[in-house]
């Protein structure tokens, strides 16, 4: 129930941002539309197995924006440089977590950071397949593996439950 109220509130704020003004009419309209949306499109039942940690979240966000910028410059350079683009690779990544929310988060972020794009997932075994733009040699492929593992660790530190962290061999983080 609290979650539904929270979502309705969030959707109302979104509505007000779209209108760009806070008038009584916009607020009433926003609450109505938000309620309607919540009734018409109920969330699928899923376990909300997330613990939020502020400082690791800041680290995750800062690193993410730096990575996105770096990724864009890299892809932009590969696009405009005279030589042909490098050969690429599809690599398999085994994630530690089984939390679907955390997995989604990791998958989304991986698609925007240097070199990788999500091709296929298997939520049951926690595996992702990534397309690596520059996968011309073994070192580049190994680098993609390391990068995915680091990305997962940052997301886990920011969001995973203590139990999930402890299970995945980072008990020092779970305090």
């Amino acid at each position: 129930m609290t979650a539904r109220l929270l979502f309705t509130g969030g959707l109302t704020v979104l509505w007000l941002m779209l209108w760009g003004s806070v008038t009584p009419l916009a607020v009433v309209g926003g609450v109505l539309v938000a309620t309607l949306a919540m009734v018409a499109f109920p969330f699928p039942t899923m376990t909300w197995d997330v613990t939020f940690r502020p400082w690791p979240f800041v680290v995750l966000t800062a690193r993410f924006f730096a990575d996105v910028l770096r990724a864009s410059v890299q892809v932009a350079w590969l696009a405009v440089r005279p030589a042909r683009p490098p050969r690429s690779a599809i690599v398999e990544v085994q994630l530690q977590t089984r939390s679907e929310l955390v997995m989604t988060q990791i998958a989304e972020m991986i698609s925007l950071v240097p070199g990788s794009l999500l091709v296929e997932t298997d939520p049951d075994t926690g595996r992702l397949w990534l397309h690596v733009l520059d996968g011309h040699d073994e070192e580049a492929v190994a680098h993609a593996h390391r990068m995915a593992a680091e990305q997962e660790r940052r997301v886990l530190r920011a969001f995973a439950t203590d139990a999930d962290l402890a299970e995945n061999g980072h008990p020092e983080e779970a305090a």
């Binding site: 696009a79 683009p85 690429s88 794009l117 091709v119 397309h131």
Partner: peptide
Amino acid sequence: TAAIGLVRFPDVLTRMHAATKPQT
């Protein structure tokens, strides 16, 4: 550069890199 990448990259998968990162 995203647009140039879309034209120059060799297949769908590589083009998606151009369509997501520099574009975003």
